[in-house]
Simulated assay, not measured.
Amino acid sequence: MRYLAAILLALVLSACASQVDTGVSEAAGTPGFWWGLWHGFVFPFAWIGSLFDPDIAVYAVPNSGGWYDFGFFLGITVLGGGSWFSSKSRSK
Results as ranks from 00 to 15, higher is better:
Met1Phe: 02
Met1Asp: 01
Tyr3Ile: 11
Ala6Asp: 14
Ala6Cys: 09
Leu8Pro: 00
Leu9Asn: 02
Leu9Trp: 09
Ala10Cys: 12
Ala10Met: 08
Val12Cys: 12
Val12Ile: 14
Val12Lys: 04
Leu13Cys: 03
Cys16Lys: 05
Cys16Tyr: 03
Ala17Leu: 08
Asp21Cys: 05
Thr22Phe: 15
Gly23Glu: 11
Glu26Pro: 00
Ala28Asp: 12
Ala28Phe: 13
Gly29Arg: 06
Gly32Cys: 03
Phe33Pro: 04
Trp34Cys: 04
Trp35Met: 15
Trp35Lys: 13
Trp35Thr: 14
Gly36Cys: 00
Gly36Ser: 00
Gly36Ala: 03
His39Glu: 09
Gly40Ser: 05
Phe41Val: 01
Phe41Gln: 02
Phe43Ala: 09
Phe45Ser: 06
Ile48Leu: 10
Ile48Ser: 01
Phe52Gly: 12
Pro54Cys: 01
Pro54Gly: 08
Ala57Thr: 14
Ala57Leu: 06
Ala57Lys: 13
Val58Lys: 13
Ala60Phe: 07
Ala60His: 08
Asn63His: 10
Ser64His: 11
Ser64Arg: 15
Gly65Asp: 03
Gly66Phe: 15
Trp67Ala: 11
Asp69Ser: 09
Asp69Glu: 10
Phe70Cys: 00
Phe72Ile: 01
Phe72Leu: 05
Phe72Glu: 02
Phe73Asn: 13
Ile76Gly: 10
Ile76Ser: 04
Ile76Tyr: 04
Ile76Asp: 03
Val78Asp: 12
Val78Ala: 14
Val78His: 14
Gly80Ser: 08
Gly81Val: 00
Ser83Asn: 10
Trp84Val: 11
Ser86Tyr: 02
Ser86Met: 06
Ser87Met: 12
Ser91Cys: 09
Ser91Met: 08
Ser91Gly: 13
Lys92Ile: 08
